[in-house]
């Protein structure tokens, strides 16, 4: 099969090589991948995901965590939680993996042009938001305030420490982080991310918020934003469901009338809020 015909078969993964591996935490790694066949390099939008295949292990959807302006390679940040992600991050530099994608609807960074942009990340949710952050910072003048709020379990769970240092040091970015628990060597915030949202500086009449994290955290964060008068149609969340085919054929990720893999994973809150509050879905 030629490369061209392989690309036209959405079920067929392309072979990519791990060219860099960085352990973010004890169980989370960032992998940089390059296509074995350079012709298979592809652009992506912030918030999109790929299906990554650990040969002999299986396939999982993983959000892209790299800079959308960086061509020729794809960055994924993966936590080892299951039978596919464990072998994926056990791979070392030079190993081959399968990749299909990119898939899905991403963060509407353009919708925030001329407005305050709030990025609210919980835990591993910072990974899918990172491309949107890098994109927005690359064209910083297109936005008013950029506020990045990040909640994590503890200081050892923080991802992208280099980025955090960079964002914290920028006078044109409002960055704050909080953890759920810490020892006395931690001098930052301890508590839920809702406290950071409550204290954040933004204009609710002219702001857009992107939220990614555990679903409960996203619901609560959205409620806190709405309590500060940010309308639902200015809030976007990234959902996770059981994505298999990744192009709305198999139905595994159906979410009411939506397919998370194709219509999402990023949704505008007003379009799905009622579904989020429906326990059966």
């Amino acid at each position: 099969m030629t490369a061209v015909s392989a690309q036209t078969d959405p079920y067929r993964p392309q072979v990519w090589r791990i060219v860099e591996k960085q352990m973010e935490t004890a169980d989370t790694a960032t992998l940089a991948l390059e296509p074995k066949d350079r012709a298979n390099a592809m652009p992506f939008e912030p918030g999109q995901f790929n299906m990554l295949y650990a040969f002999g292990g299986g396939e999982v959807p993983i959000s892209i965590s790299g800079d959308p302006r960086e061509t020729g390679r794809i960055i994924h940040t993966i936590r080892a939680v299951g039978s596919v992600t464990r072998p994926l991050i056990a791979h070392e530099r030079g190993a081959l993996v399968g990749l299909r994608g990119p898939f899905g609807a991403g963060w509407p960074v353009e919708a925030a042009r001329g407005k305050d942009l709030l990025i609210i990340a919980g835990g591993l949710g910072l990974a899918p938001l990172r491309p949107a952050i890098l994109d927005a910072l690359h064209r910083r003048s297109a936005f008013q305030r950029i506020v990045i709020l990040y909640g994590a379990k503890d200081p050892d769970s923080l991802l992208f420490l280099g980025d955090i240092a960079d964002w914290r040091g920028r006078p044109d970015v409002g960055f704050d982080v909080t953890v759920d628990r810490a020892g006395q060597d931690w001098h930052g915030n301890i508590g839920v991310i809702l406290r950071l949202i409550k204290a954040a500086h933004f204009d609710p009449a002219n702001a857009v918020a992107f939220i990614c994290g555990p679903e409960v955290m996203m619901r609560l964060a959205a409620d806190e934003l709405m309590a500060r008068d940010l309308p639902q149609d200015s809030i976007y969340v990234s959902l996770e469901r059981n994505m298999k085919c990744a192009f709305a054929r198999c139905g595994h990720c159906q979410f009411g009338p939506h397919f998370v893999c194709k219509d999402g994973p990023v949704f505008r809150l007003d379009r799905i809020r009622a579904l989020l509050q429906t326990p059966e879905i």
Binding site: G82, K153, D180, V216
Partner: peptide, 18 residues
Amino acid sequence: THARIQAMDLYAGGSTAQ
């Protein structure tokens, strides 16, 4: 409420948004 949210240990699960 915040203490209850913290007690849920929301970030312990691994697969969100992956």
